[in-house]
């Protein structure tokens, strides 16, 4: 039976580049040939969540939300708009970061949909954050002498948003790779504005847990951290702030290894994609799982 991968992302009415990482990760997966079809579907762009499934021919679909946390979008918007009428958040049986998948039938197309948890809460996302730190420092061994800040939105709309940030900060801390690891937030303490207060290390890599670069990652956070007074004039990498060298990575979702997390989500839901996972890790993560396992 033919199988499709559908990646559900937010997209934007205003920012032309919001969808770029989605297409880029989809292209990486498409090139592996692991699925008969790979389709990008958007909340704010087209094809819309409402009409995405009818654009794939396969009867079996792995639906992976390219979102950071469990919450409003993954629990309400996506299941409703994809017409997964039997959906109930209880089907994920999640503590806020532990969703794997649920299998449902789409009411409008009759396709079998394996509805996966969001990429942001998958364990392998920790590896992507580390990979992002390697990319921004251009140092595959980065860690010793460095602090790492994982930055998230905070709880403004959704308590699970902070949980996902803290979850990965804790996991990366347990790797003993960086001297210090800290979760920081935009709208609650500990705040990203005070980033240098939270680190003793002179060098600090800052990785925002966002899917795409946009207002928050390219305007708000750089100005809040003091990398620049005006985002339009840009900043250096690293940029010196209060005696620390800040290596600002931009949205983690732009890291090519994100394609691996999408595949891992589908694999956890039953897709036979182990070969593709190996290939994608090789191509986008130097073949070295950051966890060392």
């Amino acid at each position: 039976m033919e199988e499709a991968l559908v990646i559900a992302a937010h997209g934007s009415h205003l920012n032309a580049e919001s969808s770029t990482p989605t297409f880029s990760h989809a292209d990486t997966i498409r090139a592996t040939g692991a699925f008969d079809e790979v389709r990008e579907v958007f909340w704010k762009e087209e094809p819309s969540f409402r009409e995405g499934l009818r654009t794939v021919d396969a009867e079996e679909v792995y639906l992976v939300p390219l979102f950071i946390s469990e919450g409003y979008f993954t629990e309400q918007v996506i299941p409703r708009e994809f017409r997964l009428d039997e959906w109930d958040p209880e089907m994920w049986d999640s503590d806020g970061t532990s969703a794997t998948h649920a299998t449902l039938t789409a009411d409008d197309t009759g396709q079998t949909v394996h509805y996966c948890g969001p990429v942001g809460t998958h364990d392998s996302m920790s590896d992507v954050i580390v990979q992002r730190a390697k990319s921004v420092t251009d140092d595959p061994d980065v860690g010793e002498g460095f602090g790492l800040a994982v930055v998230g939105h905070g709880t403004e709309r959704n308590e699970n948003s902070a949980k996902a940030i803290e979850y990965h900060a804790q996991r990366i801390g347990e790797m003993d790779r960086f001297d210090e690891v800290q979760a920081l937030f935009m709208d609650e303490d500990p705040e990203v504005d005070d980033v240098t207060d939270y680190f003793e290390s002179e060098d600090v890599v800052v990785v925002p847990l966002f899917i795409a670069d946009g207002y928050h990652t390219q305007e708000d956070i750089p100005e809040d951290m003091g990398l620049t007074d005006d985002y339009r004039t840009g900043w250096d990498t690293p940029e010196t702030v209060d005696g620390h060298d800040i290596w600002y990575a931009g949205a983690v979702g732009t890291e090519p290894l994100m394609a691996d997390v999408v595949l891992e989500r589908a694999a956890d839901a039953g897709a036979d994609v182990s070969g593709a996972i190996e290939q994608v890790r090789e191509e986008t993560g130097n073949g070295n799982p950051a966890t060392g396992d």
């Binding site: 087209e46 094809p47 819309s48 009409e51 995405g52 009818r54 654009t55």
Partner: peptide, 14 residues
């Protein structure tokens, strides 16, 4: 055609 006008072929067919 899908990339220019997503889902139009499927909705036209329906």
């Amino acid at each position: 055609v899908h990339t220019f006008y997503p889902a139009t072929v499927q909705n036209w067919y329906r």
